[in-house]
C-alpha cells in the first residue's frame, strides 16, 4: 500500500482542479439533479455539480460495468465466421467526481469480483481508465450503515483522491493511489500543505449496528429459518435493489442476431427475478421469493467474504431507499441478528 499524502485545497482551487481535469480531455461524471433525483451524469460546468445530498439514486457502477455492453460482434460469411472483438482502446479516460466513499469502496469489491478467476479485460480497462475522486460524507440518514460493513464516512478505499470538506475555508485532500498523486502533480500549484486538519471532526456520525463477522456467523446458522419467508412476503420480485446497488454484478449473456450478423452482449441480471435460476427443463432451484431473498443476503454477507474476501455490501442504503415496498435491508439484518 502506498502511503496516503494529504493536502489542503481552497474552494476556488477545487473548481480550478475540475476545469484542469476537463482540459486534460477527460469526461467527468458527477452527481447532478435530474427528474427530481440526484444521479451521476456527464458534467461540463462546475456549478452543475450537486453536493447537498445523502446518496445518489443509482450507484455509479454503470460507468465501469455498464447496463449492457458489446463483447464482440460476428459475421457469417462464405469462409466461416468472422469475429470482431471489442476494442478496449475505444474506452475513454473518465473521472468520477463527488461519489461517496461507500461507492468508491464498491469499485474495489467489483474489481475483486471481475478478477476472481477470469481476468475481465473490458472491466479492468474501464477501471484503469477511470480516476475516482471521492468526497467524504458530512451527513447521513437512517438508511446508511457503512460503519457496520467495514466502511466509514471518510473511508479512502477505492478512491484515487478523497476530498473532505473541512469547514468553509477549504477541503482536505488525500491522495490515496499513484493515479491520485498524478492528479496532484499535474496541478500542484492548486494544493497547499494540509496543516494537520482533523478529518474526523468533519465526518458524519454513522452508528455501528453490528460487525460483518457477527452477521456472517449468525447467517450461517439461519439458512433453514422461517425468517426468509417472513421478511420476503412483501417483496414484489423486481430487480430495482440489485440494479442500483454498487456491488451487485450478476449479468446475462445475450446474442442479438440480425440475419448473418450479430452482437454478443453482456447485460445486467438480477437474483430477484424468478427466471434468474430457471433451468431449460422448467425446474427452478429457487422456486420462491423467500429463497431468492435469502440468496441475495447470503451472497453479500457470507459467500462473497468466503470467496473473494470482500463483503458484498458497502452500507449505502440505496436498496432500502429505492424499494417500492420498503424492504429495508438494515432492519432485516438487525432482525436476523436478533432472531
Amino acid at each position: 500500500m502506498p502511503t496516503v499524502e494529504t493536502y489542503k485545497i481552497s474552494p476556488v482551487s477545487l473548481e480550478k482542479l475540475f476545469y484542469q481535469l476537463l482540459k486534460e480531455d477527460r469526461k467527468i461524471y458527477a452527481p447532478v439533479r435530474r427528474n427530481d433525483q440526484v444521479v451521476f451524469d456527464l458534467v461540463t460546468r462546475y456549478e452543475e455539480i450537486c453536493t447537498d445530498f445523502i446518496q445518489t439514486a443509482a450507484s455509479p457502477k454503470n460507468l465501469i460495468f455498464p447496463r449492457y455492453e458489446n463483447l464482440f460482434s460476428y459475421k457469417k460469411g462464405k469462409d466461416g465466421v468472422e469475429i470482431q472483438q471489442f476494442n478496449p482502446d475505444s474506452i475513454p479516460e473518465i473521472v468520477i467526481w463527488g461519489l461517496r466513499p461507500c461507492d468508491a469502496a464498491g469499485f474495489k469489491v467489483l474489481k475483486s469480483l471481475f478478477n476472481w478467476d477470469y481476468k475481465d479485460e473490458i472491466f479492468n480497462t474501464r477501471l484503469n481508465k477511470t480516476t475516482i475522486i471521492g468526497f467524504s460524507c458530512n451527513q447521513c440518514d437512517e438508511y446508511c450503515f457503512c460503519t457496520s460493513v467495514g466502511g466509514n464516512p471518510g473511508n479512502t478505499t477505492g478512491s484515487d483522491l478523497l476530498i473532505t470538506k473541512a469547514g468553509e475555508a477549504g477541503y482536505l485532500v488525500e491522495a490515496v493511489t499513484e493515479k491520485g498523486k498524478g492528479v496532484i502533480e499535474r496541478s500542484d500549484s492548486l494544493f497547499e500543505s494540509s496543516d494537520n486538519i482533523r478529518k474526523e471532526e468533519f465526518l458524519a456520525d454513522v452508528p455501528v449496528m453490528f460487525t460483518p463477522d457477527l452477521l456472517k456467523e449468525k447467517l450461517e446458522k439461519v439458512f433453514e429459518s422461517e425468517i426468509w419467508q417472513q421478511q420476503s412476503i412483501r417483496c414484489l420480485g423486481c430487480g430495482a435493489c440489485t440494479y442500483i446497488c454498487p456491488i451487485c454484478a450478476c449479468f446475462d449473456i445475450q446474442d442479438e442476431a440480425h440475419g448473418k450478423k450479430g452482437t454478443r452482449i453482456r447485460c445486467w441480471d438480477s437474483c430477484g427475478f424468478s427466471l434468474f435460476t430457471q433451468h431449460a427443463s422448467g425446474h427452478n432451484p429457487r422456486m420462491n421469493q423467500a429463497q431468492r431473498w435469502r440468496q441475495r443476503v447470503m451472497h453479500k454477507y457470507v459467500y462473497m467474504p468466503e470467496r473473494i474476501h470482500e463483503i458484498g455490501c458497502t452500507g449505502c442504503g440505496r436498496c432500502s431507499r429505492a424499494c417500492p415496498v420498503d424492504m429495508n435491508i438494515l432492519d432485516h439484518l438487525k432482525s436476523i441478528l436478533k432472531s
Partner: peptide, 12 residues
Amino acid sequence: ARCIRCYACRAA
C-alpha cells in the same frame, strides 16, 4: 433511455 429494466413497474 433511462430505464434500467428492473421491471419494478411490472412487479408493482
